[in-house]
Every structure is written in structure tokens, then in C-alpha cells.
């Protein structure tokens, strides 16, 4: 999956949990939960959406690696 594709997947996953969020102003290193005011359930649903779109399993212990866009891109790119 190309970097651009990954960005689209992540944007769609975030849009599904935070429809009112402004994805364009989100910086790569920003903490997603802080920036988009995601609670535990939103973050859970974000992980589920990414899993469904990519097929990547993402064990619970790896959740912190998906805390930022940059982190999520690196994780999915492995």
C-alpha cells in the first residue's frame, strides 16, 4: 500500500469515528486522541476501521504505535 493510499485509509477511518473532525489541519506528529478529542470508544472504533480496511491485525499492545498519523503510517507500512 502506497503512502498516499495509507493516508486515505486513515482519513476515512478517522472520518468514520469523528465525522466533524477537520482532517486537513491535522499534523502528522499530533496525538490523534488529543487533536480530534477521541475517547476510548472512538479510538477503539478507529482501530477497528483500520483493521477492516487493511486486514492488519493490530494487537492491543501495539495500539500506542498508532497514536499519531506518522506512527500509524509507519506501523501499517511494515
Amino acid at each position: 500500500m502506497s503512502g498516499q493510499d495509507m493516508r486515505v485509509v486513515l482519513a476515512e477511518a478517522l472520518a468514520s469515528v469523528a465525522p466533524e473532525a477537520d482532517f486537513d489541519s491535522l499534523r502528522d506528529e499530533e496525538d490523534l486522541r488529543e487533536a480530534l478529542e477521541l475517547d476510548s470508544m472512538d479510538f477503539f472504533n478507529f482501530i477497528v476501521a483500520v483493521h477492516k480496511a487493511t486486514g492488519v491485525d493490530i494487537p492491543e499492545r501495539d495500539y500506542p504505535e498508532l497514536a499519531t498519523l506518522a506512527g500509524a503510517m509507519a506501523y501499517l507500512g511494515r
Binding site: S40, M41, F44, H51, K52
Partner: peptide, 17 residues
């Protein structure tokens, strides 16, 4: 919870909530 979730795909896991 950690033990339960380790065996399941993301969409079937539970949150502490």
C-alpha cells in the same frame, strides 16, 4: 481483559468500559 482480547480480532475485543 488483555487475555480475552489477545485471542480476538480488533472488532471483537472488549474495552474496560
Amino acid at each position: 481483559l488483555a487475555d480475552h482480547n489477545a485471542r480476538l480480532p480488533p472488532d471483537q475485543r472488549l474495552l474496560p468500559a
